[in-house]
Design a binder for these strands. Structure first.
Lengths: 158, 158
DNA sequence: TCTAGTTCCTGTAGCAGCTACAGGAACAAG
DNA sequence: CTTGTTCCTGTAGCTGCTACAGGAACTAGA
């Protein structure tokens, strides 16, 4: 009767491949999430295959979205716990999100510092020989300007 | 005669602890760099301890600086190769730096998108009960708004 | 000379967050 | 019954480190 690959047992419920297709989350990743207890272990068919209901789909989409927004798995775990049966206040949820927002802001600030430095440096590129390359000048420590040709002097036991 | 912990063999040259202190790079990290061939294996004392010369110090500082600027180890390897004995043009070095700069820029752009979305969302925090939390609304997929209390229905073998 | 304390050595395992196998069992369709 | 697909478990790999364990080498003091 059903022509889609709905398989066995209770007819509603997806197998892992379908869940993966519907959520855009890799199969191996789904199993990984189960292993690290991000997702509850779903029931199985008699043959041992996982069957997922709408709740799991929803949870997985939640996780995926949160990952896209850069939340760590631990943060997501906390969010799921707050949204869960215990119930909590919105401000607790916001606290996690705000902390994450702070992290994002400081990451942006760091990257912008890098960007300024690097683009200033790259702009000086001369296309000439390497010894005068501005990029290498920024990278190499300015102090030790010693002769680069002093190798293999010490010993060499072993 | 020497009161500083310069040990054995040729008197110039640092042991790994001193190198670590001077460069600010963790001892274990230095050995790790050697293992993955970021740093050449240095000569050893008869007792088997590594002795580093000024070139190694310089290289390690280079690596550290490049890491601070967010270059990957592979990129740094490439930079070191270019700066090395083969010599290359400044534009080759700049090519690597420019690619890295592009990565930084797109990371910044991504993070700023996140930042806007998250801060807009967090701003709506009501401090009230969870069901109406704006953060969770953003995270949860808008489609499936089904009853959350339908668990443990399918089967439960195993 | 013996001993204590420090530094160093190798090798292995762990972190996040996956991804990619190998080798086998279960299923659907011809 | 066979073929092909999907699924299963378990393990190892990725990046860039960090942290151990268990032992060897060195220094300084008694």
């Amino acid at each position: 009767m059903p022509k889609h690959p709905i398989t066995d047992a209770r007819a509603d419920g997806l197998m892992i491949g379908e869940l993966s297709r519907q959520t855009g989350v890799n199969i191996e990743t789904i199993r990984y999430y189960e292993r690290i207890k991000m997702l509850p272990a779903p029931p199985r068919t008699t043959g041992g295959r996982r069957i997922y209901g709408p709740l799991e789909t929803r949870t997985l989409l939640f996780i995926r979205r949160a990952r896209e927004l850069g939340f760590s798995l631990d943060q997501i775990r906390a969010l799921l716990a707050l949204g869960g049966p215990g119930k909590a206040t919105c401000s607790e949820v916001c606290a996690i999100a705000t902390r994450h927002l702070d992290e994002i802001c400081s990451k942006i600030a760091d990257l912008q510092k890098l960007k300024r430095l690097l683009s200033r440096t790259v702009a000086q590129c001369s296309s000439d020989a390497v010894p005068d390359c501005a990029v290498l000048d920024v990278l190499y420590p300015p102090a030790v300007k010693t002769n680069t040709t002093m190798r293999g002097k010490v010993n060499a036991s072993r």
